[in-house]
């Protein structure tokens, strides 16, 4: 049986999280179909058809799917489900919104936020805010799964194009409607949503020196964070704190500057994909978790980093 993946997109561009979900799905089976549901989303379907491993793209183009309202999306997906053994979506706010509805309509469980495919019916997922990993076997005929993007590589592009099939059925529940949206337009991304974060610790010396981090952040489109030590020392406000008592983050790249790496801080960022540590103390515990460590004076190397990016 085939696997249905639901694409995340904005009617113009296929979102990267879809590619990670495709990689996860490819570990469950070979026959991968991708559903693009939206309005005037043909461009997305074109992009989708060129992803390696995708055998077929389904496009459902209707006003009912313009904002991917959960009430409508869930009916569409449920309608298609009987042909599939797995239904997979990225664990984004969109996927998290409609997928459990799909599961309930199919009278099956949803396995949320998987980080590992053990077999076609067994998956690992973090529980207790990542303090434990549960391995769960699904007993349902159809497995409804959301995928944590950072745990899987992105699927590659292919030279071939998969065929695109048009779904004509329109499911409009007419119980909910889109009113408005407000795209975050801050110069820097939110800490919890950022793909790159650069954080400073007590080694920054004072609050003014955080401008050194901001220059790097501007180059990388990164958010700026801080350790509790830096917050407690009064360098920066509390809402910048990453750690046990602050924000829990898991970006693709986390750069820790002048942070010793107390466990309280690690608890908030250890799930980052790549960790870089810059610290002049080569014994700092942060180096024990860093993929790349640079033992150096941050005041010397931060300006260099800004220049060379």
């Amino acid at each position: 049986m085939a696997i249905l993946i639901i694409a995340e997109h904005d009617n113009n561009i296929l979102k990267a999280a879809t590619l990670n979900a495709i990689t996860a799905a490819s570990q469950m089976g070979d026959e991968l179909h991708l559903l693009v549901a939206g309005l005037d989303c043909n461009l997305v379907a074109q992009q989708a058809s060129k992803i390696a491993g995708i055998k077929k793209v389904l496009i459902a183009d209707s006003e009912a799917y313009q904002y991917q309202l959960a009430e409508n999306m869930s009916k569409l997906v449920t309608d298609l489900a009987s042909n599939y053994c797995h239904i997979v979506s990225p664990a984004t706010t969109t996927g998290k919104n409609f997928m459990p509805r799909v599961a309930a309509l199919l009278d099956v469980a949803q396995i949320s936020d998987i980080v590992k495919v053990v077999s076609e019916n067994t998956f690992s997922r973090p529980i207790y805010a990542g303090n434990a990993i549960a391995t769960v076997e699904s007993l349902d005929a159809i497995k409804v799964i959301t995928v944590r993007g950072t745990a899987f590589d992105a699927a590659k592009q292919s030279d071939l194009s998969a065929p695109i099939e048009i779904i004509t059925a329109v499911h409009d529940a007419q119980i909910s409607e889109f009113v408005s949206e407000e795209v975050a337009v801050s110069e820097r991304p939110e800490l919890t949503a950022a793909k790159v974060i650069i954080s400073g610790g007590r080694g920054m010396g004072n609050g003014e020196n955080f401008t050194l981090l901001e220059s790097v952040a501007d180059k990388l489109g990164a958010a700026v964070g801080a350790s509790r030590a830096a917050v407690d020392a009064g360098f920066v406000p509390n809402d910048m704190q990453v750690g046990q008592t602050g924000k829990i983050v898991a970006p693709d790249l986390y750069i820790a500057v002048g942070i010793s790496g107390a466990i309280q801080h690690l608890a908030g960022m250890k799930d980052s994909k790549i960790i870089v540590a810059i610290n002049k103390d080569e014994d700092a515990p942060i180096f024990q978790v860093a993929d790349y460590g640079l033992v150096a004076d941050l005041f010397e190397v931060l300006p260099q980093l800004t220049d060379k990016l």
Partner: peptide, 29 residues
Amino acid sequence: HSKLLKVEAPAERQAGIKVNSIEELIEKL
């Protein structure tokens, strides 16, 4: 609908490598 097979502590991160310069760091990233 599902069976909990096991619960484990998350794998601990291992220390990576030390780089010697910003240039090397950027190149690796």
